[in-house]
């Protein structure tokens, strides 16, 4: 396999995860290896139970794999204690969830500023927040509570919250899963535009092929394993081959 050495944001090497319930072992990920380059927008597709969410949680440092390694900007987080994984998540990762996961007691701006406070990013000007809010079309909604917002608006607030600290990676777990098609389209277009403008790496979990088509590359998973090329280089070379055959 020809591997192009590049500016990798994410690299997993033989990543495995097995859940244990008493004596029962359920493998969720089996030797998953792939790379994501800086500024890439990839979609991870696969049926329910194929290990997509587990993969995303491990990429975000929310859980430790039972085997293999995972490198975020060159740092192996699989061996780090919880406090250090939390610090990496705080500095480098922004999460977007299917169910938005906004704090219901805070307004839209409160939710966004909370992320800033957790990050300790006091230097970020209010202008930074305003720019992101305007980019996501939330200007008139910043003082509304989540319960006063539509699903699409809540998801855009969640995206703003994920972006506010300018993380190098955005991990999106079925970001359109709870939205109608119109709002899903808006959210996907926003993610794509942000990826193009801010050059942040986006890993999006989805089972919707239309949503996946927004991404620059698609990784398919089945039974805890990857079934498609594992790097951008491989993906592009496969694409070139396919084009040549077609020609």
């Amino acid at each position: 396999m020809i591997e192009k050495v590049s500016n990798r944001t994410i690299e997993t090497i033989d990543l495995s995860m097995t859940y244990r319930t008493g004596k029962i072992e359920v493998p969720a990920l089996k030797n998953v290896s792939f790379t994501v380059e800086q500024g890439e927008f990839i979609a991870v597709m696969g049926p329910s139970g194929c290990g997509k969410s587990t993969l995303l949680h491990i990429l975000g440092g929310l859980m430790k794999p039972t085997g293999g390694r995972i490198l975020i900007d060159g740092i192996d987080i699989s061996s780090l204690p919880d406090s250090e994984r939390t610090a990496i998540r705080r500095k480098k990762i922004g999460f977007v969830f299917q169910r938005f996961n906004l704090l219901p007691t805070l307004t839209a701006i409160g939710n966004i500023e909370l992320a800033k406070k957790i990050h300790g990013n006091g230097s970020l000007e209010r202008n930074g927040i305003r720019e992101i809010i305007e980019m996501l079309g939330l200007a008139g909604k910043i003082n509304a509570h989540p319960s006063e917002l539509s699903g699409g608006e809540q998801q855009r607030v969640a995206i703003a919250r994920a972006l506010i600290n300018q993380p190098s990676i955005i991990l999106a777990d079925e970001p359109t899963g709870s939205l109608d098609s119109r709002n899903a389209h808006i959210v996907l277009m926003k993610l794509k535009a942000l990826n193009e403008k801010l050059k942040q790496t986006i890993v999006m979990i989805t089972h919707d092929s239309e949503a996946a088509s927004t991404a620059g590359r698609v990784i398919e998973m089945k039974d805890g394993q990857i079934r498609t090329p594992v790097s951008k280089f491989e993906y592009e070379s496969e694409l070139r081959t396919a084009v040549r055959i077609h020609d």
């Binding site: 939390t86 610090a87 705080r90 969830f97 996961n101 704090l103 957790i118 919250r161």
Partner: peptide, 16 residues
């Protein structure tokens, strides 16, 4: 519980 999970996903430390 869920809110605490959200805080953790945002990178909130135990101390926070």
């Amino acid at each position: 519980t869920r809110e605490i999970g959200i805080l953790k996903s945002l990178g909130a430390s135990r101390k926070f």
